[in-house]
Amino acid sequence: TFELKGKVGKVVKIAEDHYLVESEGDKWIAYSDEKLSLGDRVMVVDVDGLKLKVKRIP
């Protein structure tokens, strides 16, 4: 299986209740415990079905 946990991506869209993150050339629906901005670099900390939980990284 394709393992996304630990992968790095970038926030490419902000929606009302989720983010769109591009990682490894694909776009994924993501959510975070912190507020993210367009262009933020993020790391995948968990995968919930087809949704990614991400956190901001420097």
Score class of each variant (00 low, 15 high):
residue 11 V to F: 00
residue 18 H to P: 00
residue 5 K to D: 15
residue 5 K to Q: 15
residue 3 E to G: 01
residue 35 K to G: 10
residue 9 G to Q: 02
residue 36 L to V: 04
residue 51 K to H: 12
residue 7 K to P: 01
residue 10 K to W: 08
residue 48 D to Y: 12
residue 34 E to N: 05
residue 24 E to D: 07
residue 3 E to M: 01
residue 57 I to H: 14
residue 37 S to I: 10
residue 48 D to N: 08
residue 46 D to C: 08
residue 15 A to I: 12
residue 58 P to R: 04
residue 11 V to K: 00
residue 45 V to W: 09
residue 3 E to V: 01
residue 49 G to A: 06
residue 2 F to H: 15
residue 47 V to P: 04
residue 4 L to D: 15
residue 53 K to S: 13
residue 48 D to R: 03
residue 35 K to L: 10
residue 55 K to F: 10
residue 26 D to E: 10
residue 7 K to L: 04
residue 10 K to M: 08
residue 37 S to E: 13
residue 9 G to T: 03
residue 50 L to E: 05
residue 42 V to D: 00
residue 17 D to L: 09
residue 7 K to D: 03
residue 21 V to L: 06
residue 17 D to I: 09
residue 18 H to C: 12
residue 27 K to F: 10
residue 26 D to Q: 13
residue 13 K to R: 10
residue 33 D to P: 13
residue 5 K to F: 15
residue 19 Y to S: 03
residue 49 G to E: 08
residue 14 I to K: 06
residue 44 V to A: 03
residue 26 D to F: 13
residue 50 L to V: 07
residue 37 S to M: 10
residue 11 V to I: 06
residue 38 L to N: 12
residue 2 F to G: 15
residue 25 G to P: 05
residue 29 I to R: 11
residue 45 V to N: 04
residue 2 F to R: 03
residue 44 V to N: 02
residue 52 L to M: 03
residue 2 F to P: 15
residue 2 F to W: 05
residue 16 E to H: 10
residue 35 K to A: 10
residue 47 V to S: 04
residue 13 K to I: 08
residue 10 K to T: 06
residue 51 K to L: 14
residue 31 Y to L: 13
residue 58 P to L: 08
residue 8 V to E: 14
residue 35 K to F: 09
residue 6 G to N: 02
residue 33 D to R: 06
residue 25 G to W: 04
residue 56 R to A: 12
residue 9 G to A: 14
residue 55 K to L: 14
residue 30 A to S: 14
residue 55 K to R: 08
residue 48 D to E: 09
residue 58 P to V: 09
residue 36 L to W: 01
residue 51 K to W: 12
residue 14 I to D: 07
residue 20 L to V: 09
residue 56 R to I: 13
residue 38 L to K: 07
residue 40 D to E: 10
residue 6 G to F: 02
residue 17 D to F: 09
residue 28 W to C: 03
residue 12 V to Y: 06
residue 6 G to T: 01
residue 5 K to E: 15
residue 46 D to W: 04
residue 4 L to W: 04
residue 24 E to K: 03
residue 55 K to E: 15
residue 43 M to I: 14
residue 25 G to Q: 05
residue 29 I to V: 07
residue 29 I to K: 07
residue 22 E to R: 05
residue 16 E to L: 12
residue 34 E to F: 04
residue 49 G to H: 11
residue 32 S to A: 12
residue 47 V to W: 05
residue 6 G to D: 08
residue 48 D to L: 11
residue 45 V to G: 03
residue 58 P to Q: 10
residue 5 K to T: 14
residue 51 K to P: 03
residue 20 L to S: 08
residue 32 S to N: 04
residue 26 D to Y: 14
residue 57 I to Y: 10
residue 30 A to C: 13
residue 50 L to P: 08
residue 7 K to E: 05
residue 22 E to K: 07
residue 21 V to N: 01
residue 23 S to P: 01
residue 36 L to I: 06
residue 7 K to N: 04
residue 8 V to Q: 08
residue 48 D to I: 11
residue 34 E to D: 09
residue 18 H to M: 12
residue 21 V to E: 00
residue 10 K to P: 02
residue 18 H to W: 11
residue 4 L to G: 15
residue 21 V to F: 15
residue 43 M to Y: 08
residue 40 D to Q: 08
residue 14 I to E: 10
residue 16 E to K: 11
residue 17 D to E: 11
residue 7 K to H: 04
residue 57 I to M: 13
residue 36 L to P: 02
residue 33 D to L: 07
residue 30 A to N: 00
residue 22 E to D: 05
residue 2 F to A: 15
residue 5 K to N: 15
residue 53 K to T: 14
residue 38 L to F: 11
